[in-house]
Each structure stands twice: as structure tokens, then as C-alpha cells.
């Protein structure tokens, strides 16, 4: 082994470690689904605050939650049947999934607690979810792709604004949280598609 061979071996190890570290499929199509729904659902619900119609309001809410849950479940199941990204770093993806599951699980728990313990606290539930999604997006931004950080900050800014003006929370969160999640999901899916085509291309003996 001479210096040149050692340098080449070291460069090879580093390039592979870098490639495998980047090859993460965070399955962010869930954010596309929920981002698109929130974009329409939250402003629509807010509109019915000013033009009361409980039946229409509940129909939109239940319809949005049911649509999102069904689509997320089906696409998640299809995606788990076969890895979408060959050679993906399943360990990092699982760690990221664990963190996101913690955020989403906390969101569900607090949604139940707000409903059960604070009468009249319901308007704060969308704000809670804005915060949960902002945290998820910033986490993905740190560990997956920094391109997603602005999306998370947009959702965070929307959440803060919604907290300042709770009566207009749906109108504020629809475009901020909805577009933030939608844009992040599209960016991530494009990145996964790009990584799918990438090979190290080294001629190995």
C-alpha cells in the first residue's frame, strides 16, 4: 500500500459514507397530502366561523381528515412494500420517522387534551398543528435537506401570527402551513427521485 492507494481508498470510503448518509427516503408524500388539504380546509373552516353553518363546517372537517388519513395510509402501505430508494439509509430514515412520530403523536395527545380539559379551546387546535408541522419541517431541514428549513420557518411564522390573531387562524395557517408542507413535500420527493438515479459510478475491482 502506497500513499496514492491510501488516498484513493480513503476518498472512496468517504464518498460512499457521504452518499449513503444522504440517501434517505423520509416519505414526505404525507406532507403533500396534508399540505394540500390544509391549504383548502383551514380557510374553509375559518370562513364558516363568520358565516355559521355547522353541517357544512363538520362535513369539511370530517371529509378532510378522512381523505388525508385514507390517502396517507394507502400510500404509506404501498411505499413500505418495496423501498422506493435503492440503497437508502434505513437507519437514519427510521430515526427521522421516530422523531416525526413523536411530534405527530404529541399533536394528537394535545388535541385530545385541549378538547377534554379546556372548553372553548378548540380554535387553538389548528394552531397546535401548525406548530407540530413547523417542528417536523425544521427537523427534516436539519437532518435531510436544508432546502426544507424555509418551509418550516414559513409554517412557524404562520403559527405565531395565528396565535396573535386566533379569530383568523384558519385564513393564516391555510397558506402558510399548507404551502409550507406542500412545498417541502414536493422538494423532498424531487430529491428522492434524483437520488434514485444516482450511482457512485466508480469502477470497482
Amino acid at each position: 500500500m502506497n500513499n496514492q492507494q491510501a488516498a484513493e481508498d480513503l476518498a472512496l470510503i468517504r464518498s460512499i459514507l457521504q452518499a449513503t448518509h444522504r440517501r434517505v427516503d423520509p416519505q414526505m408524500f404525507h406532507f403533500i397530502i396534508w399540505g394540500a388539504l390544509v391549504l383548502l380546509w383551514y380557510p374553509a373552516e375559518n370562513w364558516f366561523d363568520f358565516h355559521p353553518n355547522e353541517i357544512a363546517r363538520n362535513t369539511i372537517r370530517i371529509g378532510a381528515i378522512a381523505t388525508g388519513t385514507v390517502l396517507s395510509t394507502i400510500l404509506g402501505w404501498l411505499s413500505n412494500r418495496r423501498p422506493r430508494l435503492p440503497g437508502s439509509n434505513t437507519r437514519l430514515a427510521a430515526q427521522l420517522g421516530g422523531v416525526v412520530a413523536l411530534f405527530i403523536g404529541s399533536g394528537v395527545l394535545f388535541t385530545i387534551l385541549i378538547g377534554a380539559l379546556h372548553q372553548g379551546g378548540e380554535p387553538f387546535i389548528p394552531i397546535l398543528w401548525g406548530f407540530v408541522y413547523a417542528l417536523c419541517l425544521v427537523t427534516f431541514g436539519i437532518f435531510f435537506s436544508k432546502d426544507l428549513i424555509p418551509c418550516g420557518l414559513l409554517a412557524l411564522a404562520g403559527t405565531a401570527a395565528a396565535l396573535a390573531f386566533p379569530a383568523y387562524a384558519g385564513f393564516i395557517l391555510g397558506p402558510t402551513m399548507g404551502l409550507g408542507a406542500l412545498a417541502a413535500g414536493i422538494l423532498a420527493e424531487r430529491r428522492v427521485a434524483g437520488l434514485k438515479k444516482e450511482t457512485l459510478g466508480d469502477s470497482l475491482d
Partner: peptide, 21 residues
């Protein structure tokens, strides 16, 4: 081995495609 060290385990086809072997 370098490919496996960060992800722990990988399918045959994934290693083949990643390394171009």
C-alpha cells in the same frame, strides 16, 4: 462494507445499483 456501515443493512440489488457492480 463502507456502504453498509452507515445503513446497517441493504438489499443485494441496492448495493449493486449504488456501487455499479
Amino acid at each position: 462494507l463502507s456502504a453498509l456501515v452507515s445503513s446497517g443493512e441493504m438489499e443485494f440489488t441496492a448495493v449493486r445499483d449504488l456501487l455499479g457492480l
